[in-house]
Design a protein around this nucleic acid. Sequence first.
DNA 1: ACCACCATGTAAACGGTTACATGATTAC
DNA 2: GTAATCATGTAACCGTTTACATGGTGGT
Lengths: 188, 188
Amino acid sequence: MDVKTLCLGVLTEGDQTGYEIKHRFEEAFNHFFGASFGSIYPALAELSRQGLVSCQSVEQTKRPDKKVYSLTERGRRALLDELMTTPPRHKVRSEFLVLMYFAHLLPPERLAAIIDEMIARWEPLVAEIERCAAGAGCDMTPNPGMRFAAGYGRAVLGAALTYVREHKAELIRAVGDAAAEPVALAGD
Amino acid sequence: MDVKTLCLGVLTEGDQTGYEIKHRFEEAFNHFFGASFGSIYPALAELSRQGLVSCQSVEQTKRPDKKVYSLTERGRRALLDELMTTPPRHKVRSEFLVLMYFAHLLPPERLAAIIDEMIARWEPLVAEIERCAAGAGCDMTPNPGMRFAAGYGRAVLGAALTYVREHKAELIRAVGDAAAEPVALAGD
DNA sequence: ACCACCATGTAAACGGTTACATGATTAC
DNA sequence: GTAATCATGTAACCGTTTACATGGTGGT
């Protein structure tokens, strides 16, 4: 499953331009699937070439023509097929946790700054997930899947936030103590 | 931050071969950083070329020579520098949640199978994280960072497990109801 | 018989990010 | 004057996955 499939999926919610699709990605999939313009535009071009979406240009003054994409019947079938057959992978790649893993190699101020940065990034993300689950940014009443995904995000990010908040001081203290130990021995 | 950095990090725990490093990755970083042989061996070769690790071959009968890598002083400095400067990214890419998002396009049996598969995959993962946090697979007493990362994994995976278990039936019912509605109207 | 474990490596293919190119409009 | 919004696209680059290549040992 790649950006192409996600584009097909977004287009089930109505015809959209590449630009709009990008924003829909950010609203709806922000916490579990990222995509940049550099992957979306080529994906749409390829889908168009394969006849899975159709495209009509809308002229605009002093701007590139807007290209509105629609899901074709073949595109819908391809999407359903993909959804029926792709295995449910779930990958996390966290440089944050790598940094935490090697906490004993870092000064406490750096640890504090890293954790604070994560908290500052996750807090608004939870807020946005909540907004999205309430139906913002999408015409229709939020369907069950949307609510499930949003609920998952809220639950998991909530747990992450709680965990880092509750263990920040403990980690910093423990690292400080471990660093102090050999010095104390040497000073004996 | 890439596999190279992680290799340097693992080597702070003691000299190891590429093969052993791979297994250490699976034990320690399983839930937040994946790496295959195809990325580890070239990474070690590159680190060796850069003088960040040293390597001594150990002859073996009827097997390729074992190559034991050690962190050099320059390697340690490079690692510390990397840990001090890399921003704490944290990315999730979940085809599972994409599938859930489009639940209304899938039959209930498929939804149930997907959720059950995730539960079956996460349950042993939590168990392994717990084992690792207790100090298994690593000579030293687990240091604070290891425990923090493991605790994070336990908290977050625990929340994920609880969430999917508690909302599985609800999702499947809601999707079934939504699918039944138009039929009921048509039948009126 | 067959599979898992040990042990290293290469190379093609893949998919995505980043940076670049263009350029008017509107709001602070 | 500076930044954000609208709007599309290309191309170089990056790192990883996947598949292949080799082959003895030990367990069920």
